[in-house]
Write a protein that binds this DNA or RNA. Structure first.
Length: 297
DNA sequence: GTTTGTTCCTGCTAGC
DNA sequence: TGCTAGCAGGAACAAA
């Protein structure tokens, strides 16, 4: 499940291969990979062919590759199972391959970027770049104050130097939703998914169903610190891989799954107090927490 | 305006 | 062995 660390690993892997590369050809195998694109697959292929990519940028879980001219970008979201893989030119089709870009790079020569996606929740699109309201860089990987229109409503992530902590605190203070739901709301803070929400709440000793407005200011400080710590540690370990659903651009898995304290550890002892981690249904998904050290007050 | 629930999708696994 | 139900979950949208 690609969250911020996994998407950042992919962005960093793509950057050297796509920056300065020209798109020699585009093949759309499955239209469902274009759900965020306005236009047909043929129009998508035609609009990209011949264009030069100038960077690889990311905000939260959204990626984008700005195109020459500075007015638009190829944007991507990996959804649950999307992969962006770097392959040799002419390599055989990947399992669940949806879109292939054939690139001509001035240093690396001919390479292919393959978008593969088992569950088809991910997609690519061409989107217009617009100015950021705060004039800071639109995302990590491109210093310009530009962001794709479809990404403009996404809040900055907690590792972004321009992350607006006051806005985050204000959103919590006026929300009667569960704190976990707020952490998963990409319009309030981006990059956090189910895994890292559970891990950060465990580390901060906060019950996932605690009403956001009832979380004390000093506890929010602790939570933000734990969110950043868990994201940075996962990033350092190459992200979290449970199966083949998340890999970097070379198809390699990350190691953070070995460092999880709560997520996916139902029935196993809490590393802090030894009580069994429980799993409850939450928002059509699962929450994992320690009922002893994450109490609902 | 805010909050909560539904939908999209495929592959794996447990249970019968 | 084969079938079915349940599960995984990001984000947009619908409904309350």
């Amino acid at each position: 499940m690609p969250e911020l660390p996994e998407v950042e690993v992919v962005r960093a892997g793509l950057a050297p291969a796509v920056t300065g590369a020209r798109i020699a050809g585009v093949t759309v195998h499955d239209d469902r990979a274009l759900t965020r694109h306005t236009g047909t697959a043929a129009e998508f292929e035609g609009a990209l062919t011949g264009r030069l990519m100038t960077a690889a940028a990311r905000r939260g879980k959204f990626l984008w590759l700005p195109l020459d001219g500075g007015e638009d970008a190829l944007i991507g979201h990996l959804g649950m199972s999307g992969q962006l893989l770097l392959r040799a030119a002419g390599s055989p089709p990947e399992r669940h391959e949806r879109i292939r870009l054939d690139l001509q790079h001035p240093v690396h020569g001919e390479v292919a970027v393959v978008f593969a996606d088992q569950r088809t929740f991910g997609s690519l699109a061409i989107d217009q770049l617009i100015l950021t309201p705060d004039t800071a860089a639109g995302g990590h990987g491109d210093a310009r104050a530009l962001v794709p229109r479809q990404v403009a409503h996404i809040a900055r992530d907690p590792l972004d130097p321009a992350f607006d902590e006051r806005r985050f605190r204000a959103a919590l203070a006026r929300s009667r939703s569960a704190i976990k739901r707020v952490l998963l709301d990409q319009g309030i803070v981006s990059g956090i998914g189910n895994i890292y929400a559970d891990e950060a709440l465990w580390a901060a000793r906060i019950h996932p169903e605690t009403t956001a407005e009832r979380v004390a200011a000093r506890t929010v400080t602790r939570l933000l610190a734990e969110v950043r710590a868990v994201l940075e540690k996962a990033l350092a370990e190459g992200g979290t891989s449970f199966d083949e659903q998340y890999v970097n651009v070379n198809g390699e898995a990350g190691y953070f799954a070995h460092s999880l304290n709560a997520y996916g550890r139902t029935g196993q002892p809490c590393p802090r107090c030894g009580h069994a981690i429980v799993r409850v249904s939450f928002m059509n998904r699962s929450s994992h927490y320690c009922p002893h050290c994450q109490r609902l007050r």
